[in-house]
Amino acid sequence: MLAKRIIPCLDVKDGQTVKGTNFLQLRQAGDPVELGKIYSSQGADELVFLDITASHEGRKTFTDMVQKVAAEIDIPFTVGGGISELADVERMLSAGADKISINSAALRRPELIDEIVSHFGSQVCVVAIDAQQDEKGTWTCYLNGGRIPTERGLFEWAKEVNDRGAGEILFTSMNHDGVKQGFACDALSQLASFLTIPVIASGGAGRMEDFRDVFAQGHADAALAASVFHFGQISIPELKEYLRKEKINIRI
């Protein structure tokens, strides 16, 4: 049986990892390659590196980092941030990334998903969706790291992403992100009920129980978190032991 995956996410700016709380404040947390190696040896199932640099020089630094990760780390990894055309995908895959994740670029031009899938296969294409739920309960997708609301609803956009052939959806609930009160299990469970591709849950990890719930109740295929791992609030070996005791199928 396929194991549920635990994925630490590293936000990278100018070659250093950072983590935002509610997408705004940033705190320093170390060298991404070293951090990635530690997570891999602790039993992380995959890694995600997000480039949050805007400058051209920053992009070059990020590509160099991707090459280093590919050379030194022996588990799969996804890279995202600033990927807006096929040439960016090609550059990241040639640097050694296993998968790429796109977000705003897909919302602006959904055909990009089809292009990536036909050139490189569905397994490399992760579509990240940042969405926020309003007080009426409606989920809306956001652009540019959660700064700009769109007209698209979470569920209809997720369905389109699925049908265009993406390999996975990385769903971040902006309501839950940085709050550490658990993942958006209701929305996740609803996504799992109609999608035919795996969903990576992101936003809200605070306690080990949150991971159990996101798998058992949210039916997520993978759970992504950043600060709880970076600041040592949860250790991956402990988390995996705990999940196995809770009867979640996990790789140890």
């Binding site: 396929l2 194991a3 995956r5 199932d45 996975e168 035919t196 795996p198 295929d221």
Partner: peptide, 16 residues
Amino acid sequence: IPVCHEDKIPHMGWNS
């Protein structure tokens, strides 16, 4: 060939 809704293709991830 998927038999139920949970059978996702490709088979991607860690299996024993």
